[in-house]
Every structure is written in C-alpha cells, then in structure tokens.
Simulated scan of single mutants.
Amino acid sequence: MQFDSLSSLIAMGGYGFYVWLSFGVSFLVMGLLVIAAKAERRNLLKTISKNQQRQVRIQKARQNGQSAQE
C-alpha cells in the first residue's frame, strides 16, 4: 500500500487507531512474555542452586554421621 503522506499512513483510511493499537498491544504482550520468561528462568536457577546446596549438606551430614558411629 502506498500513502501520500505520513499523516495518511498513520490514519490508514480511518482505521489507523485500531491498526496501531493492535501493534502496540502485540508488542506489549511480547515484551511482557520476554520479561516473564527471564524472571521464571532466574527463579528456576535459584531453586536448582538451593536444591544442589541442600544435597551437599545432606551428604556431609551423612558422612559426619557415619564417621561418628565408627
């Protein structure tokens, strides 16, 4: 589609508000999805790290318990 001026591009034959609003909402939702995915990844990595640290503490406690029994 070819437009005569920038204002006619923005107006889009009277449908500009709906067209640009749909673009805006789409980009907003995609941005929120990226932010949510990064936050979820960060939380998942924290959980994995905590679980690994817990496993190390459990193994140390088991080793200390076995050496105390001997």
Score class of each variant (00 low, 15 high):
M1L: 08
M1D: 05
M1W: 00
Q2A: 03
F3L: 01
D4S: 11
D4Y: 03
S5Q: 05
S5E: 04
L6A: 10
L6K: 08
L6H: 09
L6S: 06
S7L: 11
S7K: 10
S8H: 10
S8V: 03
L9E: 08
L9G: 07
L9W: 15
I10E: 05
I10M: 14
A11Y: 15
A11K: 14
M12V: 06
M12H: 14
M12N: 12
M12P: 01
G13E: 09
G13C: 09
G14Q: 10
G14A: 07
Y15S: 08
G16I: 11
G16V: 10
F17K: 11
F17D: 07
F17S: 04
Y18M: 07
Y18G: 03
Y18D: 11
V19F: 15
V19E: 11
W20V: 10
W20H: 13
L21A: 08
L21G: 09
L21N: 13
F23E: 06
G24W: 04
V25G: 00
V25A: 10
F27S: 01
F27G: 01
F27M: 07
F27C: 04
L28D: 00
L28Q: 03
V29R: 05
V29F: 03
V29W: 05
M30C: 02
M30I: 06
G31E: 01
G31L: 02
G31C: 00
L32N: 01
L33Y: 01
L33P: 00
L33D: 02
V34R: 02
I35S: 00
I35E: 03
A36Y: 04
A36V: 03
A36Q: 04
A36L: 09
A37P: 00
A37H: 03
A37T: 08
A37Q: 04
A37E: 08
K38T: 03
K38A: 06
K38I: 09
A39N: 04
A39K: 11
E40K: 14
R42S: 10
R42K: 15
R42A: 13
N43C: 12
N43I: 14
L44I: 06
L44T: 13
K46H: 14
K46C: 05
I48G: 01
I48R: 14
I48S: 03
I48D: 07
I48K: 11
S49R: 10
S49N: 07
S49D: 09
S49Y: 07
S49P: 01
S49Q: 06
K50L: 10
N51E: 13
Q53P: 00
Q53I: 02
V56R: 12
V56T: 08
R57A: 12
I58S: 01
I58G: 02
I58A: 02
Q59H: 03
K60E: 12
K60S: 09
A61Q: 09
R62N: 14
R62E: 13
R62C: 08
Q63K: 15
Q63A: 14
Q63C: 04
N64S: 14
N64P: 01
G65C: 12
Q66Y: 11
S67K: 15
S67V: 14
S67L: 14
A68L: 15
Q69N: 09
E70R: 12
